[in-house]
């Protein structure tokens, strides 16, 4: 593998891995607090699947000599993380445990729905990737996306169609998530090289397909398309992050960081 090519592979893998890790970390915080007991159980499986996907990507990085999977997942500081900012954001205001957590289900549904819709388009593209191991894991991960998409699409449709307060909350969540959903589509400052290396199709192509999906759904539900996907808080791929990420990393690495060298 040429060093330049390897660099692009690594860059893209970090984006994919960190996205799945952060969104599933936020999912794990919901466990036990979801609006409906049956949904609590269902959502947790999606969270586990997604953390499993992160694990798969980190394993590819480990094979490329980047270090142990758990070091990659737990010990990299915020500045080195490549996830989109919208995925690191808290589930809602208030400390996640006994400090008045007010988790926002509308935000969670919208964030997850848009995330899975983009992930599906990315995975389809990765199935043609020039990097064989990535092509193989894309085929694997693709098997679990249909459930994730159906699950979040169903919640999205029903809460929008419910009208009243639910519809208003969903619209507000759409507006909020849209401001930063561009960060998930972003391939970062090295996009050109990543695309040139044939690892994945361009941001523009992925965006067009995602907008096509969303446009169709929005038309069906009578929702207004919010325009261009934004990246208001910055590009996580370029190392821009918020305090929410710092907080998340502190939590998720609290135990592991006590002694990363030993089995737990």
């Amino acid at each position: 593998m040429k060093p330049q090519y390897k660099e692009e592979v690594i860059e893209l893998l970090y984006q994919l891995a960190d996205d799945d890790l952060l969104v599933s970390y936020r999912g794990s915080e919901w466990l036990g607090l979801v609006p409906h007991i049956e949904e609590d159980v269902a959502y947790s499986s999606i969270t586990q699947n997604t953390m499993g996907h992160a694990n798969i990507y980190y394993s590819l990085l480990e094979e490329l000599g980047e270090g142990k999977v758990d070091d990659l997942a737990h010990l990299r500081p915020a500045g080195e993380r490549k996830n989109a900012i919208i995925l690191e954001e808290k589930n809602g205001p208030g400390h996640w445990l006994y400090g008045e957590p007010r988790y926002d289900w509308a935000f969670t549904v919208v964030r997850n729905y848009f995330y899975e819709a983009i992930k599906k388009r990315k995975i389809d593209s990765l199935k043609q990737s020039s990097y064989e191991p990535l092509r193989q894991v894309a085929v694997k991960i693709d098997t679990e996306i249909p459930y994730h998409l159906m699950h979040w699409r169903t919640w999205f449709e029903q809460l929008v169609r419910a009208g009243g307060e639910a519809e208003e909350r969903m619209k507000a969540a759409v507006a909020r998530v849209w401001e930063d959903i561009g960060g998930v589509l972003s391939l970062g400052p090295n996009e050109e090289k990543i695309v040139e290396a044939g690892l994945i199709e361009s941001e523009a192509v992925l965006k067009e397909r995602f907008l096509e999906d969303i446009n169709k759904k929005f038309t069906e539900l009578g929702l207004k398309m919010p325009g261009e996907p934004g990246m208001k808080k910055g590009d996580g791929r370029a190392g821009f992050h918020t305090e929410d990420l710092e907080e998340a990393l502190a939590q998720l690495s609290e135990v592991y960081a006590l002694n990363p060298a030993v089995p737990w």
Binding site: Q48, N49, G52, T143, E144, P146, Y147, M150
Partner: peptide
């Protein structure tokens, strides 16, 4: 189409 949502990756020994 919905039956496709029933597939899973065999990586869940942890459970």
């Amino acid at each position: 189409e919905e039956r496709k949502t029933l597939n899973r990756i065999d990586n869940k020994d942890y459970r």
